[in-house]
Amino acid sequence: MFDQITGSELIRAFALLGAGLCMGFGAIGPGIGEGFAAGKACEGISRSPEHANLLTRTMLVGQAVSESTGIYSLVVALLLIFVV
């Protein structure tokens, strides 16, 4: 199938494969978690619509924090693609 596989090609291949795996599986958790936060914010606003702004901001800050693991995955994937 391949004429000959050199060591550097093997490393490059695993780096690309790892990038895909990293971003794919890393996206699951933040996606579910941030959706939860958005849902609970809607529930909170339905109870006290006058605090909508405060609740939305709290939701966004909470989501930003839970997104950090997704951003770590993105960083690792980009490093694997462009640096390794």
Binding site: E67, S68, I71, Y72, L74, V75
Partner: peptide, 9 residues
């Protein structure tokens, strides 16, 4: 660095 990347993302 992570905060900067978070903003760019």
């Amino acid at each position: 660095p992570l905060n900067v990347i978070g903003e760019l993302a």
